[in-house]
Design a protein around this nucleic acid. Structure first.
Length: 883
RNA sequence: GGGCGAUUAGCUCAGCCGGUUAGAGCGCCUGCCUCACAUGCAGGAGGUCGUUGGUUCGAGUCCAAUAUCGCCCACCA
């Protein structure tokens, strides 16, 4: 490819994903004898499109998987998709609507077939988007929650739980979405505060002229009232005991009952009771044996129990009820009322509490085990504080409504005998009733909640209920990476199901990552119109830059407010890497043969960069091991840019460009090349999990025969023979010296092409030796002319100066010196030094400090004081000289 | 009502176990198209770490209270 000075991600990204996938490099082998490392992907909805949440979630998983794969594990990242019952059914129903049809026109079988067709043709677009993101998923293992194997797992779980009495059928108040025409679970109901109204309605007391007043936010439900309730301790209404009221509009007598549930303080202290349309009323109804009158049909339209209101939509009915009451003089008042109203999490329709026959999981016994598993540390949440959220929910968990009145999903394997009404639940479809022998059998129409099948994901995808080698090897999985928004929906259910059916937690750790928000800190959502499309970002800046941005933003316990500027910044980082590579590539030359590095040949900065490389390797590895993605990414960034490029590359130029046939010059250049090559390759490897594409591209430019791709290369380890702490100290001193000289040049506006003479004044032999040794580097990097080391130098008034512990630097500037500026510069430095000095002296003057602080700390302060004292004296001297 | 989190430079954020001069990117100012890179290089300005107390020899870091913002859960006739 063209080795242009601007990195072009498009060309590079296109070729490598195909290469990896075709060569099977994402494959995990259950027979490889290696230690397993498993992640199951949170299965995206088959209808899904890659959004920021997916991008973050899957980038982090891919980082972990690529890292562990390089670290020699048998790394499996299990791909798959979720059938997403309601969401998918909605999509296909919308399409049908465009054709002027409804699902009922097609009938169940045809409709389901139609959804499958849609799924094959248009579903799973997200898979290509995950490829685009570089996700190294083991694609041939891909599963779908509705595929045959997973359906078998679902059935096995349902049957077992039913047989153990943990699944039951019951007539209960559930959350009903009149638009989706199905029950949804408690956690699928989202509550939003809405400004509604509180209507106060007068009910005549039977056989008297008295009226009582009840208040309601849903007047239409009065059609199904079967009582009015008061608190038994409420003296105001003692005279109403045993009385009845006449339910207006319906002209039905209903009793006044006494129940502790009714609050004396709220409203009038009297409550209308509608057992079929309110969970609290339902409970009261049970306690008092009240009839349950359901006045709504599944579309939210008043049914035959609603008298004259039959056929009206719930909101039309509400209006008409209120109007009619008003006409009768029974509407006392209408108040504004803020209350939270449940909405369907899929279509945002207001849900109705609705009495119906549904299937439930008796959850307590499963939850108890799941709580224990976390308490005992069998599962760890990272960050840990999510454990609290988890416990909170698990302690207060209520039975899980798992039946959905949909067609797209796992049909509940319950069969009813048309003859005797027996309910049969079994692995095989029964052909006749096992009680009465009748062949008149029909299967339950309802399907299961989507989350019922996703709850089995960590083991169903590995072949369960069969004891496959994959299941044995890769379960339990290593870590689950997900957002906090599905801890209840998914994480908790997987834990319960895993413990129940696999006898072991489904994962050892749960890493909960942030939510991605927009620049205003708002949650990104289509309805807000504030989504940043990851695909557009990848187009614009490249996948590697995009992934790196997500990783470096992924600090624990904090949401991500994504800014495009940052992505742009990391595109520059890609470019930096690219150009560093160009530099190295052109300088190694065609005849370069990588080989071992002999310790004696190393020069000072070689030892320094190798030492820093060791440090980077251990820091990045440690950060990844603790899911501190941001630190890992930051470490790589700093090492690459600010150590390798800013310093080492610059420092090798003198050696690489060195002229002459001198053997020493050639040897030095040769060593530099070997070090460049080694550091380049190791730091590419460190970067690979974050930026898979550019690293693979460059790796191949520099690979030696038989080496293989970077994705399969071994994760770097620190090399103890590269630990050179004292060289590292010298290098820091050297860098500091350069900062000082450059600072003077910059502040004094010394023209870039003017080479300044630099005089170092020091009595330290070590420092002098270092400076002498690095003279050429100082000349090059500080644009210095002559470099003088003179312990007895007497500065001139036109010298600009800088002082460091044990070292003074002078730049004779003659005509260029601006005395006022120089005085100000030194004055500022003196202020800083004296400020520090005051703090240190105050500390040292305190007997508490010297007496109680560790000796090391005190000594450090003493050394610091001496240094600061010396610096202050020198600075004063320099300033005095200027006046 | 219960719980969680945030508050650090103009903006977006790091800062693990309390101990040199609190860091980065972007933005801003100055000077540079220096033979890897102007998606760049060199230099610079900018912060009493929300507030108040406490613990400690020492607090951005630990504790308590408080303010503001955000989120989750529960209740809501």
């Amino acid at each position: 490819m063209e080795f242009s000075s601007v990195y072009d991600p498009k060309q590079v990204e296109e070729k490598w994903y195909g290469y990896w996938e075709e060569k099977g490099l994402f494959r995990a082998d259950e027979n490889d004898g290696r230690e397993p490392y498993t992640i199951v992907i949170p299965p995206p909805n088959v209808t899904g499109n890659l959004h920021m949440g997916h991008a973050l979630n899957n980038t982090l998983q891919d980082i972990l998987i690529r890292w562990q794969r390089m670290a020699g594990k048998s790394a499996l990242w299990m791909p798959g998709m979720d059938h997403a019952g309601i969401a998918t059914q909605n999509v296909v129903e919308r399409l049908l609507k465009e054709e002027g049809k409804s699902r009922d026109d097609l009938g169940r079988e045809k409709f389901v077939q139609r959804v499958w067709e849609w799924k094959e043709l248009y579903g799973g677009k997200i898979k290509d988007q995950l490829r685009r993101l570089g996700c190294s998923l083991d694609w041939p293992r891909e599963r779908f929650t509705l595929d045959e194997g997973l359906s078998r797992a679902v059935r096995r779980v349902f049957v077992t739980l039913y047989e153990e009495g943990l699944i039951y059928q019951g007539n209960r108040i559930i959350n009903w979405c009149p638009r989706c025409e199905t029950a949804i679970s408690d956690i699928e109901t989202e509550y939003n505060d809405l400004e509604g109204s509180l209507w106060h309605i007068r009910y005549p007391v039977a056989g008297t002229n008295e009226f009582i007043t009840v208040a309601t936010t849903r007047p239409e439900t009065m059609l199904g009232d079967t009582a009015v309730a008061m608190n038994p301790a409420d003296g105001r209404y003692a005279h109403l005991r045993e009385k009845k009221v006449v339910l207006p509009l319906m002209n039905r007598e209903i009793p006044i009952i006494e129940d502790e549930f009714v609050s004396v303080e709220f409203g009038t202290g009297l409550v209308k009771v509608t057992p079929a349309h309110d969970p609290n009323d339902f409970e009261m109804g049970l306690r008092h044996n009240l009839p349950q009158i359901n006045v709504l049909d599944e579309n939210g339209v008043i049914n035959e129990h609603g008298g004259a209101y039959r056929g009206l939509d719930r909101y039309e009915a509400r209006e008409k009820v209120v109007k009619d009451l008003e006409a009768l003089g029974l509407l006392e008042k209408k108040e504004k009322h803020l209350h939270s109203v449940g909405h369907c999490y899929r279509c945002h329709t207001v849900i109705e509490p609705y009495l119906s026959l549904q299937w439930f999981v008796k959850i307590k016994p499963l939850a108890d085990e799941a709580i224990l598993a976390v308490e005992k540390g069998k599962i760890k949440f990272v960050p840990k504080n999510w454990e609290k959220t988890y416990y909170e929910w698990m302690y207060n968990i209520r039975d899980w409504c798992i039946s959905r009145q949909l067609w797209w999903g796992h049909r509940i394997p319950a069969f009813y005998c048309g003859q005797c009404g027996r309910v049969m639940v079994s692995m095989e479809d029964p052909v006749s009733c096992d009680a009465c022998g009748s062949g008149n059998i029909r299967q339950e129409e309802d399907v299961l909640d989507t989350w019922f099948s996703s709850g089995l994901w960590p083991f169903s995808t590995l072949g369960w209920p069969d004891e496959t080698p994959a299941l044995k090897k890769y379960y339990p999985t290593s870590v689950l990476v997900t957002g906090f928004d599905i801890i209840f929906f998914w994480v908790a259910r997987m834990i319960m199901m895993g413990l129940k059916f696999m006898d072991d937690a489904p994962f050892r750790e749960v890493y909960i990552h942030a939510l991605v928000r927009d620049e205003q800190g708002q949650k990104m959502s289509k309805s807000r119109g504030n989504v940043i499309d990851p695909l557009i970002m990848m187009d614009k800046y490249g996948t590697d830059a995009f992934r790196f941005t997500l990783a470096i933003f992924a600090a624990q316990g904090r949401d991500i407010i994504l800014s495009e500027k940052r992505i742009e910044g990391y595109r520059s980082f890609c470019n930096k890497i690219w150009n560093a590579t160009r530099f190295i590539g052109t300088n190694l030359g065609g005849d370069f043969a990588p080989g071992g590095i002999s310790a004696d040949s190393l020069e000072h900065f070689d030892r320094w960069i190798l030492h820093r490389l060791n440090r980077a390797i251990s820091d990045v590895t440690a950060a990844l091991a603790e899911y501190r993605f941001n630190e890992a990414a930051q470490n790589i960034y700093d090492f690459w840019w600010h150590e390798f490029c800013d310093w080492y590359l610059e420092l090798t130029k003198q050696r690489l460009y060195g002229k002459g046939e001198d053997a020493a010059v050639r040897a030095s250049a040769d060593t530099a090349k070997r070090v460049l090559y080694l550091v380049l390759k190791k730091s590419l490897q460190l970067l690979h999990p974050f930026m898979p594409f550019i690293t693979e591209e460059i790796w191949h430019m520099f690979s030696v025969p038989g080496e293989g791709p970077i994705i399969m290369s071994p994760w770097p380890e620190p090399d103890p023979s590269f630990d050179f702490p004292s060289d590292s100290d010298d290098a820091e001193l050297f860098k500091d010296v350069l900062y000082r000289i450059r600072n003077i040049r910059g502040e004094m506006n010394v023209p870039p092409d003017r080479k300044a003479r630099v005089i170092f004044k020091t009595v330290s032999k070590r420092t002098a030796a270092m400076l002498r040794r690095e003279e050429a580097h100082i000349r090059a990097l500080a644009r210095a002319g002559e470099v003088v080391i003179d312990g007895a130098y007497v500065p001139d008034k036109t010298d600009a100066s800088a002082v460091m512990p044990g070292l003074e630097i002078y730049l004779p500037l003659k005509d260029l010196i601006d005395i006022d500026k120089e005085r100000a510069r030194l004055g500022k430095e003196l202020d800083r030094v004296t400020g520090d000095l005051e703090r240190v002296e105050k500390k040292l003057a305190s007997p508490d400090f010297t007496g109680r602080a560790p000796e090391q700390v005190v000594d450090k302060e003493r050394v610091k004081r001496d240094e600061l004292l010396a610096l202050a004296a020198k600075l004063k001297e320099s300033i005095d000289k200027l006046s």
